[in-house]
């Protein structure tokens, strides 16, 4: 006969609990549809074939967001010698790529404003928000500086204000949400671009425009709109005349939103954190009830004695 002791009881409890959790949660996760983005959200279509690397967008971003003075003027092209990344002082940067074509291509980097942002999913203080207009914004007043979003972002966009000793926070492009987007105006970079490398519009319209451009000039463009489907779709999308991996894009991200990889795990976390402590505290109290009663009795007896 199997001995029914505390250890076995707990083992069964844990296994049963975990199984129940997994089963019920995977059913939930299966039922939860992918969000797919707000229907009328705005976006930007970036046509790399038009960019000449004038860096007007960088200058406009710097002015609009009140960012610190750059190390070099924005008309200095020596910055193209290295591949730069977004930083606390530059929410957008333009890099130059030598390609298989006979001319280089320039690529602007900024937050792509995913439909289902991994940064938002990863943030445990809910600092991030995907607005119906399409921007992924964040509230620096609640940011605790854990930098999980920097790890979660598939495009390596959020940067950290290491220079701030008192209150370092995460910094990134917010689609000019507070100053422009929420009033229906295009972001500063789009307005500054001389060649309409950046086209602002409703995301659904931009997708049609992108495919129309490919159709009308099939020899110029590769037949792919980067960001239409990648990681569940992004508000910023790209057209290129060379394969996207030649101009620094990660072409292995897949079309699943990042959250879908962690949905099942993440749904267990609140259960583990809320139910388990109460459950096991209860087990503990039950298991020790006899002992404590005995102690009580003993102390009463001792007291009498």
């Amino acid at each position: 006969m199997k001995v029914f002791n505390r250890r076995n009881f707990l083992k069964g409890g844990v296994a049963g609990g975990a199984a129940a959790t997994l089963l019920s949660k995977s059913k939930d996760a299966g039922a939860a549809k992918s969000f797919g983005g707000y229907p009328n959200s705005m976006g930007v279509l970036v046509d790399l074939t038009r960019c000449v690397g004038c860096r007007s967008c960088e200058a406009a971003c710097n002015k609009e967001q009140g960012l610190p003075a750059p190390d070099l003027p924005f008309d200095d092209t020596s910055v193209f010698e290295e591949k730069r990344r977004t930083s606390e002082g530059a929410y957008t940067v333009v890099n130059k790529y030598d390609t298989s074509k006979d001319h280089p291509l320039f690529r602007k980097i900024q937050c792509n404003h995913c439909n289902e942002p991994a940064c938002l999913t990863s943030c445990f203080v809910n600092a991030y928000k995907k607005t119906p207009e399409g921007a992924v914004t964040y509230d620096p007043t609640v940011c605790v500086g854990c930098r999980t979003c920097m790890v979660a972002c598939p495009f390596y966009v959020p940067a950290y204000s290491y220079s701030s000793v008192i209150n370092p926070v995460v910094k990134k492009c917010v689609f000019c949400y507070d100053t422009r987007l929420k009033f229906g105006r295009p972001p500063a970079c789009v307005e500054s671009c001389p060649k309409e490398v950046l086209s602002f519009g409703k995301r659904k319209d931009l997708i049609k425009i992108a495919h129309q451009r490919i159709r009308s000039k099939p020899d110029l463009y590769v037949n792919h709109v980067y960001g239409e489907k990648e990681v569940g779709g992004t508000s910023w999308m790209y057209l290129s005349s060379v394969p996207f991996d030649e101009v620094g894009f990660d072409t292995h991200l897949g079309n699943q939103p990042i959250i879908s990889y962690v949905k099942e795990f993440l749904t267990i976390v609140p259960m583990v954190l809320t139910i388990w402590p109460a459950l096991f505290a209860g087990f503990h109290l039950l298991a020790n009830r006899k002992d404590s009663k005995k102690n009580e009795k003993q102390s009463i007896t001792n007291g009498e004695g």
Binding site: A59, A69, P73, D75, G89, M150, Y156, S161, K171
Partner: peptide
């Protein structure tokens, strides 16, 4: 806007940490 000419940043070519 371009921080050029008389608005050029002073201190020249110092490199800033990327913030990552």
């Amino acid at each position: 806007m371009f921080r050029s000419g008389k608005y050029a940043p002073k201190g020249g070519n110092k490199s800033r940490k990327s913030g990552h």
